[in-house]
Simulated scan of single mutants.
Amino acid sequence: MRLHEYQAKQVFSDAGIPTPASELAGTVDETVAAAEEIGYPVAVKAQVHVGGRGKAGGIKLVEDKEEAREAAEDILGMDLKGYTVERVLVEEAVDFVNELYVGVTMDRGEGEPVAMVSTRGGVNIEEVAEEDPDAIAREHIDPAFGMHPYQARKVVYDAGVDRAIANDVASILRTLYQLWDDRDGSDAEINPLMVTGDDEVIAADAVFNVDEDALFRQPELAEMEEEGEFAESELERKADEYGFDYVRLSGNVGIIGNGAGLVMTTLDLVDHYGGSPANFLDVGGGAKADRIANALDMVFSDDNVDSVVFNIFGGITRGDEVAKGINQALEQFDEIPKPVVVRLAGTNWEEGMEILNEDLVTVEKTLEDAVQRAVEYAEEVEA
């Protein structure tokens, strides 16, 4: 379960992590009133579950009442990467001189939680990890003992944080880990943790994701999940309606498969061949033609998707039924909106291959070839 920024900041603030003064608003007038009460300058921030809100126009810094009204009119109701913005967080602007990153997550490879600190805050931490992994200091934590004070100080110093604020940053990191542990977190991040000219550190953003299977023992967070339903994306609503297991990701290669393991393998291969997955979509076993058509409708509805790869291994699911569904979905278009690559194997795969309209799709015999072709198509669109 993902908390919204305003919810995560409430959790962080209650635990003692410094956050800017802020108010939630759902209308233009509420936004202006909140800005007037907090005092200019303020940031008006869309409350949706996506990254890159600033680049997409979902965060605006305003200096007066007129700008606050204009920002609210622009942001409220906008479509932000498939999400309709229904609320904004009006927040005191922070006059900062530096931006840091602090986070806690589970390192599944090591089987332990890991705390991370970087002096390159304010940017996508995944990009930092890929381009300059040494810019992120890491410290693994034994969950039986929790984070010791020396571990928090060590990872902060390893990251090269200025000594004038190192103890404060270490204290925030320990609090973040304790929240992650006590509240059954999966990810906890502050990016950026802003540093002011007076050497104060303030959480200017907040991410807190919680293990849904543990919500029964986190009643306060469970209530926040219900409150946050207003920002569920249209794609997620469609997934619920169709009965799909669906997760939207940040890439541009759409993925459809039958079975969680098969879809995860396809995601891994897209990444392996230099692509970026746009989603996890499992149509389940025994998928009929109409269900396959619904899956394509969902993926085509995602503006981020530039190509689609279909990976079907027939057991209960029959290859000929899948092929009928793909044809049925694509034949309704005068022009195919995204290139589609199909790989069929298993039950009735040969019959399915014969049925597929190769004027509408690209057919590959192996999963590796199908993924590589889909990645190539996506790269051609980007170019």
Rank of each mutant, 00 (worst) to 15 (best):
T31V: 07
V342G: 07
A33F: 06
R69G: 13
A289F: 12
E227I: 01
V11T: 04
V85A: 07
R183W: 02
L89T: 03
T362E: 10
S186D: 12
D168T: 09
N124Q: 14
V195Y: 01
D158S: 14
G82W: 01
A260Q: 03
I141F: 07
T266F: 12
L221W: 05
D162L: 13
T317D: 07
L61N: 03
G82K: 01
K324Q: 14
D359S: 12
V247R: 14
L344A: 02
K365R: 09
G121V: 03
N357L: 07
N167V: 13
E350Q: 15
A289H: 11
E364N: 07
E229V: 12
A214Y: 00
D334S: 14
Y150V: 12
V340M: 13
D132T: 12
D184V: 04
V361F: 13
E126L: 12
G259A: 13
V104N: 05
A378Y: 01
A144N: 12
V104Q: 03
F208E: 01
I326V: 15
I38A: 08
E91T: 00
S276T: 12
A71Y: 00
V42G: 01
E126V: 05
V156E: 04
I38M: 10
D132G: 01
I59C: 00
I316C: 03
V114H: 11
V42I: 08
N209R: 09
L330S: 05
I165M: 10
T347Q: 09
L176R: 10
V48W: 00
G160H: 05
I256V: 15
I255L: 14
F313C: 08
N252Y: 14
G197P: 06
T366G: 09
E226L: 14
K60M: 14
K338Y: 11
A323V: 04
L221S: 05
D184N: 13
L3T: 08
N191A: 07
G325D: 04
L344T: 03
D184S: 15
D359K: 04
N191R: 03
G325R: 02
A383E: 13
L215A: 15
Y177L: 08
A383C: 07
G243F: 11
A115V: 15
V340P: 13
P219G: 09
A260R: 05
I125A: 02
E36I: 00
V305I: 00
G314N: 05
E86A: 11
L3N: 01
I255N: 11
Y377A: 15
L249M: 15
A164K: 15
V88E: 02
G275R: 05
V201Y: 02
E226P: 06
I17V: 11
I125G: 02
I202V: 13
V50I: 15
V88N: 02
T105P: 06
A329H: 10
D74V: 00
